[in-house]
Simulated assay, not measured.
Amino acid sequence: MIIFRYLAKEVLISMAAVTLVLLLIIMSGRFISYLSIAAAGEIPMEAVFYYLLFRMPGFLELILPLGLFLGILLAYGRLYLESEMVVLQATGMSQRRLTVYTLGPALFTALLVSLMSLYLSPVGANQTEIMLQKQRNIGEFDVITEGRFQTMPRGNRVTYIENLDSLSGTMRGVFISEKVKLDSREQAVMVVAEKGRSYTNPETGIRYLVLDNGYRYEGNPGEADYRQIRFEEYGIRLPDQQP
C-alpha cells in the first residue's frame, strides 16, 4: 500500500503539472479570442471570465487523458532514471503489479472525465448558450464602451461615445456613422451630437436613441451632393429585441 500511494502520488503530480500547462495554453488562446470579440462590442468585457469558466470542463475533458498519459511517462521515466524502479523490481515488483498500481490513477482520471462529460460540460454549455441568448437580446447601445470606436454586430454602423454616465445612461460626444438606403441608393450618414440618451416608448415599447444639439450629414465621400441638417433633438429608432 505504501508503494501504491507513492507511485500514485508521483503520477498524479506529474499529470496535474502537465494538465495545468496545457490548460493555460488553451485558455490563453480562448481568452485572446474572447477579448477581441468583446473589444468589437459583441459581448461585454465582464462576461469574458464567465465564458472561460463555463468552457473549462470541456477543455479538461480532452486534456486530462493526455495529461495522464504524459504524467505516467514522466513519473516512471524519472523513477527509472534515478534507479528507483530497479530497486522496486529487485524487491519483487513485477510488471503486472506495476500495471495494477497504475490503474488506480487511471481509474480516478476516468471518473473525473466521466463527471465532466456527463454533467459539468453539458451544464457549462447550457450556461454559455443562455449568456449568448441574453447577449443577443441586449440592444446595440447597451454594450457600448466610452472612448472607443465600435462596430455594431450587424457591421453597418460605427459608434463612438466620448463619455458615458453609467448611472443615468447619458452619453456625451456621440458620433454615429452608417450606410443607409436613401433615394434608392446607398449613402453614408454621419450623426454628431453633443449628448444622447436611450428612451423607450411606454405605449409601444419601441426603443429610441435620442440625441440633442447636433448635426446629421448625408452623402458619399468625394461627391458634391450632400445634405447637412442641424437639429436640437433627433431620435433614432433602435432595432427591436427578439425574445
Rank of each mutant, 00 (worst) to 15 (best):
M1F: 12
D225Q: 11
I229A: 05
L20C: 07
I37A: 09
K181V: 15
M171H: 00
L209M: 12
I161T: 08
R230Q: 12
T91G: 14
L167K: 13
L182P: 02
E233G: 10
R185L: 07
L68G: 05
R197F: 11
K181P: 09
E129D: 08
R154G: 14
A39T: 13
E194L: 07
M85F: 12
L211Q: 06
V18C: 02
V11Y: 01
T102I: 14
V158P: 03
A16G: 12
S177F: 14
I72E: 11
Y160V: 14
L111T: 14
L88M: 15
L22P: 06
S83I: 08
L23P: 00
M190I: 15
L118W: 07
R30G: 00
L81P: 02
V143W: 02
P122K: 06
G196I: 10
L53W: 08
L111D: 06
Y215C: 01
G155P: 02
Y34T: 03
L111K: 04
E10K: 08
T151M: 14
L103E: 10
L115M: 10
F141H: 02
F59D: 00
G214D: 01
L88C: 08
E46V: 06
I72K: 07
Y34A: 12
Q187E: 15
N163E: 14
L120D: 00
L22Y: 06
S168K: 05
E61C: 07
E194I: 02
R230I: 10
G67L: 03
M85R: 05
Q187I: 07
F59N: 03
E10V: 02
L68Y: 02
A193G: 06
M45L: 11
R136K: 12
L52Y: 03
K195D: 10
Y199A: 12
A125N: 11
A40P: 02
Y217Q: 05
F149C: 10
E140P: 03
M93V: 13
A106K: 09
T200R: 14
S166V: 13
Y217D: 00
V210Q: 10
E233T: 14
M171S: 01
